[in-house]
Amino acid sequence: MSILAFVEIAEGAIKKTSQEAVGYAAEVARMRNTTATAVVLGEIASAELENLGRIGAAKVLQAADSRLNEGNIQAYANVLAQAVEKENAEVVVLAKSSLGDAVAARLAAKIKASLASNAVELPDTSNGFIVKRSIYTGKAFAYTEMNSDKKIIAIKKNVYTPAETENKASVEAFSPTLQEADFNVKIKETVKATGDILLPEADIVVSGGRGLKGPENWGIIEELAGALGAATACSKPVSDLDWRPHHEHVGQTGIKISPNLYIAVGISGAIQHLAGVNSSRVIVAINKDADAPFFKAADYGIVGDAFDVVPRLTKAVKELK
């Protein structure tokens, strides 16, 4: 028996959320008296891979096949199923993501595993195998008993901070059998912002709403985000109006985030927006309307004009550093 962690790569580096998944998997492995194996698909520099040992992986399985450099849902599910078999894995841990979610679902059917998505804590194995997960878009939790032999846990960001050690993982090449049918879905083109901090990966997120009056005013949001090393986000009306791209939309029907710090500027705080951000550790609301519902959900609030307040915050952050 072992515990697997599925590791995603972005721009040649291991994603931060995947590192959390490796740490979580290592902790589950300790609970089950076994070891954690990280599975990396595609070609990546080996120095990166050994470093997975520092956060708890005893072994890294690398399928360095160029056909796996792009995130293909069916191929990935097929390869992970083979890794589960090879390692006789009981649990597969992964970070929630656009690719991870889609892959995990197919993998669940392949290996007949129960799947707990949006896990927020380590499993409770004192009596069975129970995972606490976030449901109703962050409005509640469900303690979910996983009744199958094999289990998949998709964790939310910021659920687990891996402890750093000096250990190095042993890297093992892995050559799964790939079939042509795995690549039936052809990736024709990938349009992706490069260099930016990806929203689901970010520790700090600065978000703007309709209160900013127009896309031309986004400079103040970007400057504050730049000073903080944060990702930028927006509310649904803003992406509906095409002021910002859809992949920046956080909320009930957009991306759900759980960073350390979420700063909302000119967003009133409708329940649908809060649903997507209420798992953030610390929330700051900046709004000119003192009655904005966001102040009820925030930890810190400033009632004021964004065009005055935000540049002053940017300046204060720069002075601090």
Binding site: A140, F141, T144, E145, N147, A285, D299, I302
Partner: peptide, 20 residues
Amino acid sequence: ELTTVTKYELPAPKGACKMI
């Protein structure tokens, strides 16, 4: 069924917002 929910829980209530 592969999963069973044993119990639900609501998040802890948020403390008061500190206004600056």
